[in-house]
Design a protein around this nucleic acid. Sequence first.
RNA 1: GGAGAAAUACCCAAGUCCGGCUGAAGGGAUCGGUCUUGAAAACCGACAGGGCGUGUGAGCGCCGCGGGGGUUCGAAUCCCUCUUUCUCCGCCA
Length: 425
Amino acid sequence: MLDIEMIMHDPEYVKKALLKRGFEVDFKGFIELREKRNELIKRIEEVRALRNKLSKSVGEYKREKKDTTELFLEIEKIKNSVDQDEVSLEKIENEINEFLLKLPNLPDEDLLSGEKENNVVVSVNKDQPEFDFEIKDHVELATSLGLIDYERAAKISGRGTWIYTNLGARLEWALLNFFIDEHLKDGYEFLLVPHLLNYESGQTAGQFPKFKDDVFWLEGESPRKFLLPTAETALVNIHRNEILDLKALPRKYFSYSPCYRREAGSYRSEERGMIRGYQFNKVEMVQYTTPDDSDDAFLELMVKAETLMKKLGLHYQVSKLAAGDVSFAMARTFDIEVWLPSIKIYKEVSSVSNSRSFQARRGMIRYRNEEGKVDYVHTLNGSGLATSRLLPAILEQFQTVEGNVIVPEVLVPYMGGIKVLTKVK
RNA sequence: GGAGAAAUACCCAAGUCCGGCUGAAGGGAUCGGUCUUGAAAACCGACAGGGCGUGUGAGCGCCGCGGGGGUUCGAAUCCCUCUUUCUCCGCCA
């Protein structure tokens, strides 16, 4: 949610900033609604003040055994005078709210405008791996090495799913455990969250109302619940409607969860195997900070995510997203994209974002500053990392001429000492 | 799933039967002070926050006793509804 005062004071600025991400708005109607709202509030409150005063007198009169006929006459006169105004006010408040909930976050000043094409690669780790043999893609490798079973997954679930089998399951779990240990070392709090969330959580995170068709809803649940599309949705909601102590900031959390996404219509031909599915695993980091600290926190999350990639020894690039490619709730996003040799494409395995006060405003997540004043926190999140996309990258980047895969050194302890994935008989 | 009980401020807790002098007793925590070499204890003092409207401002007003609605001149208190927590029973990993 954007700051209403900011819109009221400088609608042109907001309009221009949103245009950078390709979002067109006109605030004229909105400003009129706000003005109308304030007018109504003034009128209603005046009448209420008078009524309160008179009602209080009734009590006093009764105690003193005075006649209250006069008072009741007066109350009767004003009683229904603002009924219509109250109805209008409620309607206007709803309209205002709906409008605000549909506005995306303002992109940071330094972002380029435009869509994906304007993303900028800001750094690269290692050279593209070169192979002097014909490489296999991760589907071939996973199948021949017995790591993934796509067919039986289709049988028991449907398309867009897979089963991690044997060493495949172990490798996926090794990644998760490795990441968890790294975050614990850095002092982040480990939370395992519910996967079924309520509507308010989706609204605060910024998924709803705009993207409520992108998640899986549970039938027959009342109030309705959806499957979390990322642990961020849960983590960013745990302090909803709270005022945090300054001493409690920054808060640094991480969680592992499967991520459930409908990905309606976004399936692309090169996205075979486990590049895009209805369910994938991810470790997610979230920070709550003061506004002053959020830029540092962003860097910290970035470094943490990149460090994991470096320790795995993968070739990747970091992209600074253009305003139009930054998601609805975020002011800035850097993606870490891993190289997939078979399709010669970099695919996102981590997305580090600063929402600034956008989510905090939606969820009334606040803190008390040095002067004792209440202000919104900043929320940030970063994948650390999406394992289900990492596994294909590891298979492809670390494959050998024999069709085996070298296990990244940092994962070997988590694999029970297994250094190479070879074909099982 | 069934049957009960509850939700009051940072925490505990009174008030709810019998609606008005209750924006809410009391205690703890916290903060400030006295005392002390320092600390503890004791004592004294402060301590309802938050949202919204209005005003340059001190302030004033509206809404706030889990959320939403209703009854009433007036609701923490009465009614409806939702959510959550606890206890018991059933079922189950």
